[in-house]
């Protein structure tokens, strides 16, 4: 299918919406689902992309950048989110830092690993306990509206936001792309 006829992929929409909202810094720990977005971000000189050793480092880098006047986002998977509770509870929340998080949801809707499933079940209780705004994006039609609104609300309200990428978005129309990596 010609490029101009096909629907814009979720990765392309996310990249475009981040630019429109002047989110220039990306810090990530890699993940299979996020891999195509990560490649596009690396290839685009608009973005400064940092790949630290741990997710809580990524949280601190993006938080520090906000203090210095630069907007950023942390990309991670569910198991990475499980490692950042202390950074959220003792840095992001009390200092009122509008940290943007994009989390690829592993461990649900057909994951082959029990450990991913167990880790996944910790994510929403932590987000809810800390009072962090979160939304699971399931449909391609919703990507632009949800990402754009959540980014804006984070900065308007001086509060963190977690955009969760459901397998319904990232896997359903891409069954050939399922990887056991």
């Amino acid at each position: 299918m010609p490029a101009d006829k096909r629907a814009e992929a979720w990765t392309e929409i996310v990249l475009r919406v981040l630019k429109a909202n002047e989110v220039r810094l990306v810090a990530y720990v890699p993940d299979n689902v996020l891999a195509p977005l990560i490649s596009m971000l690396h290839a685009d000189p608009y973005f400064t992309v940092i790949c630290p050793a741990r997710e809580e480092e990524a949280v601190a880098i993006v938080s520090g950048a906000y203090l210095g006047g630069l907007r950023g986002i942390v990309l991670m998977q569910t198991s990475g989110f499980a490692t950042i509770t202390n950074a959220l509870a003792s840095l992001v929340c009390p200092f009122q830092i509008p940290l943007l998080m994009m989390i690829s949801e592993r461990g649900t809707l057909g994951d082959f690993q029990l450990l991913q499933a167990i880790v996944c079940r910790t994510m929403r209780p932590v987000l809810e306990t800390l009072g962090i705004e979160h939304f699971s994006i399931q449909r391609l039609d919703d990507v632009e509206f949800v990402v754009d609104r959540m980014v804006k609300q984070a900065f308007w309200t001086q509060a963190p936001a977690a955009m969760i990428l459901s397998p319904l978005l990232t896997k359903k129309d891409n069954l050939d792309g399922i990887s056991h990596g």
Binding site: E57, A60, S63, G64, Y66, G68, L70, L91
Partner: peptide, 12 residues
Amino acid sequence: LALPIALGVALA
């Protein structure tokens, strides 16, 4: 996290 916070400020 002081060092990664400082890295973020330095990037900004």
